[in-house]
Amino acid sequence: MPWNLDDNRPIYLQLMEKIQHDIISGVYRPGDKLPSVRDLALDAAVNPNTMQKALAELERSGLVYSQRTSGRFITDDQSLLNRTRDALAGEHIRSFMEQMNALGFDKETTLEMIQKL
């Protein structure tokens, strides 16, 4: 099943976000080995070079590290995982608040409504 990708944003960014999401949500466990670039690219139905770029970027962020001969692994640095999770949560909250704001709800009213849920 090809991954769900938007039309208007760079593909490698979306691949990064998807893998990052899979790491945070526990599809991959800390220390797990990632599938090969080729398998991930096939699964996502994208170009292998694009997948390669996404993984290289994830490596730079530290979420993923590579071991020369045996492939790529998910970090087991729990504090980095927590920070990444919090950053993702922050993004979701910001975009939610913006949407509520666009509907005419200010911050207090929005928070009250959440409390009542």
């Binding site: 039309d7 208007n8 944003r9 760079p10 593909i11 490698y12 170009n47 694009t50 770029k53």
Partner: peptide, 15 residues
């Protein structure tokens, strides 16, 4: 490259 186009124009190659 496809991603250069998307970054520069903010749209797909098709668009």
């Amino acid at each position: 490259s496809v991603d250069e186009i998307r970054t520069k124009y903010g749209k797909s190659v098709d668009a």
